[in-house]
């Protein structure tokens, strides 16, 4: 199952040229661009691992692309996303967030039902991948940095 999250989730995966343009847009707005990765695909997982510090002082997208390439080379079988943080007053939040890398195989999610009193049923999802320990979730995934 192809995971979709954040911006552009309705589009095919972005090419490097498209990512460059998006990153350049964020930098032109004065937003800090960060790269993060994870192997836990749950939609409510907000604790992704940071790949280095957010980049506050870049003018050109090439610097971010170098970090993106390094992160994808180090974690080819994990999810990688790009964030753009707007520090201006009134926003102070992430303005852009999109996936730029995904594992070759994405097992998807299991729907769990919990029966309560009086025929009440609570639903939740659990990703099949997260059932295995970090390092064994997606094929040749690297062990460090879960």
């Amino acid at each position: 199952m192809r995971l979709t999250q954040g911006q552009f989730s309705f589009l095919p995966d972005l090419t490097d040229g498209e990512i460059t343009k998006q990153v350049q847009y964020a930098l032109d707005q004065g937003w800090a661009v960060a790269v993060e990765f994870t192997n836990d695909p749950h939609p409510r997982n907000s604790y992704w691992t940071m790949w280095g510090n957010p980049m506050f002082d870049l003018r050109d997208a090439k610097g971010v692309m170098m970090e993106i390439d390094a992160c994808r080379a180090a974690h080819p079988d994990q999810y990688v996303k790009v964030l753009a943080f707007d520090s201006s007053h009134g926003f102070e939040t992430v303005r852009m967030s999109y996936l730029i890398n995904r594992p070759a195989e994405e097992p998807g999610f299991e729907l769990l039902r919990a029966e309560g009193p009086g025929r009440r049923i609570g639903y939740t999802v659990r990703s099949y991948a997260a059932g295995r320990p970090p390092g064994e979730r997606y094929g040749r995934e690297t062990r460090h940095g879960t």
């Binding site: 003018r59 050109d60 090439k62 170098m66 970090e67």
Partner: peptide
Amino acid sequence: TKEVLKRAMGG
């Protein structure tokens, strides 16, 4: 060094 190079990229 890489940090500086990243900052200078494009210029």
